[in-house]
Every structure is written in structure tokens, then in C-alpha cells.
Computed example of a mutant assay.
Amino acid sequence: MSRPAPQKTLSASDIRARKGADPLVCLTAYTTPVAQLADAQCDVVLVGDSVGMVLHGLPSTLSVTMEMMILHGQAVARGVNRALMVVDMPFASYEDSPARAFANAARLMAETGCGAVKLEGGRHMAETIRFLVDRGIPVMAHVGLTPQAVNAIGGYRVQGRGADGARILDDARAVAEAGAFSVVLEKVPGALADRITDEIDIPTIGIGASAGCDGQILVIDDMLGLFDAFKPKFVKRYAHLADDAARAIAAYADEVRARTFPAPEHVFGEAPAAQAPGTTGETGA
């Protein structure tokens, strides 16, 4: 019986070529089992710095370290075969100079095996994006609401309304011209996201933006209903796994307290007695 041909792992160039084609499906992942599930359906699996909040209980992404991103990147890499794996560059790992950004991006790629990195920022990060791309590191950009800059922009509020839309458009143009292979548009008005999608030649990936973007991304713990510390308007709950887990844990606790778990089928019995050498185990005259 012949085996199916192995699937080709998507590259940043493959994603770039999807501009204006079938929408790109993107999700975050932080562990091997979840990465395997996402890989079966997604074009891009992002090891997001959101891991700090959804798995480590941090109040924001600002305390996420390179070591955390590498650890979770290595775990995700074990579960991804087809999708492009992208790893977020954490706060303070790339902002101060292109050279520092290159050193940290190169480390992320070398130690996780990812196919690209993602960094936040528009026009002011264009030089860094160009520096990385020129040295062989594919970059996914991120404009609009940039969570690592939440203290500077005044919270998790919509970006690009009214006259501020020109700034976001300018940011998107700048990262595209600098060589980013795609750009995340987070929490920007739909009409602005549509205009950006029409005007730049790289795929736009929306999160709280527009269905007209070239793709969409969500934090997987949000869309599965596992994380509810924040409930953004743009998140659709496709499952409510936290509720299911709470019910399962409560049922387990009830059975342990009632001594109905473990039941006989969950308990090991004594091993069969060993037979003496040379016997068949039968009796007779």
C-alpha cells in the first residue's frame, strides 16, 4: 500500500503569494498537542507572546522573555508539519537597534526552527524590518493596536479612527515597502482595513479588523473559551472548553470524595501466580 506524499511546509514566500487568493487561516499555539490540531487546518501557526497572559497568568505581554518564546516555540515546532510557524519577538528584544533585532531573531529561528518572526510597529520599525529581511529573516509585521505598546497608546482601544487612520495606513505601507511578507491589522475600523488590504501588495491578516482582509487570526485560547480574563468584541467563541473542564473537574472531585473513583476497572489486581517449571497447570491422575 503506497503512503501519501508528505505535505510541503509552507514558507513565508508561499504566504506572500496568497495575496488576494483564498483567505489565510491563522491561529496561535503554545504547546505540541494544540499545534498538531491547528496545523491540520491552518496556514500560519503563531507562537504569540500572548502566551504570557493565557498560560502564565501575566497581566500583559510585557514580561514575556526570549526564553519563554523559545521554550514554547520548540514545543509548537514538534506539532507543526504543514503550516508556516511564526514566533513573536518579545518586548525589548528588537526595538533599540536593527543589529539587536537581528541577533534575537536569528536566535529564535535557530533554536525553534520557525520559518519567520513577527514584530510590532509601523513606520518606525521599517528600517529594522528591512535589515532583517536583507539578512534572510522573514518578517510578519503588526500594526494598529500593538499590545506591547499598550502603555504608550492608552490601553486596548481601537486604533485608526478618524484622522488617525492616515497614520495606520502609512504604517502598513511602510512595513510592506520594507519587505514584510504579511501584516497583522489589529483592532482597526473595517473600512480602514479594507483600504489597506486594497492598497498594499502583501497579505493583511485581521484580528478585530475586516472580513475583507487576506486572512484572519485569533488567540486559540480565546476562540476555544479557555481564557476569559479579557473578552474582546472581535473574539467569537467557537467552543466553551473552560466550562466543560470545570464540569469535568467537579465530577472528578465528587467521585473521589464519594470513593466511587477509582472503580474496580481502574484498579490493578494481583498478578497471576507463576507456574512451577515443567508443569502445564493441569491436574490429573
Rank of each mutant, 00 (worst) to 15 (best):
L185P: 00
F227Y: 14
C213F: 11
G215M: 10
E255V: 00
A106Q: 15
A149G: 14
I129T: 03
A245Q: 11
M68D: 15
G73V: 08
A239N: 11
A116V: 01
L84A: 02
G113W: 02
A101D: 10
R130E: 01
A126G: 15
A17W: 10
T280M: 00
A211D: 14
D201S: 13
F102H: 11
I129P: 10
G52T: 04
G115L: 00
A21H: 15
V51I: 09
A276Y: 12
D201Q: 13
F261M: 14
V34N: 09
I137T: 11
R123K: 13
D171T: 04
D88P: 04
L226D: 01
Q216R: 07
R157C: 15
P4H: 04
D221R: 00
F261N: 08
D201K: 05
S210G: 14
P264C: 04
F234I: 07
D214A: 04
G121A: 11
Y94C: 11
K8C: 01
M1I: 01
V235K: 06
F181V: 01
T260K: 06
G162S: 07
S60A: 07
D49W: 02
D14N: 08
Q216L: 10
H56S: 11
L27M: 12
E120I: 00
N151S: 12
K118C: 09
L71I: 11
L71G: 10
G115H: 01
D243Q: 13
A29E: 06
I137V: 12
A163S: 12
H72N: 10
D244P: 01
V183C: 10
D164K: 07
P4A: 14
Q159L: 03
R161D: 12
A126I: 06
A105L: 05
L185A: 01
G179F: 09
R157W: 11
L108M: 04
A191K: 10
S97A: 09
A242W: 00
Y30K: 03
G20V: 04
Y252R: 04
A163H: 13
M109T: 11
A29P: 05
F102T: 04
G278K: 04
R259Y: 02
F261H: 08
D164T: 06
V64N: 12
R78S: 10
G73E: 05
V117H: 03
G79L: 15
V235A: 08
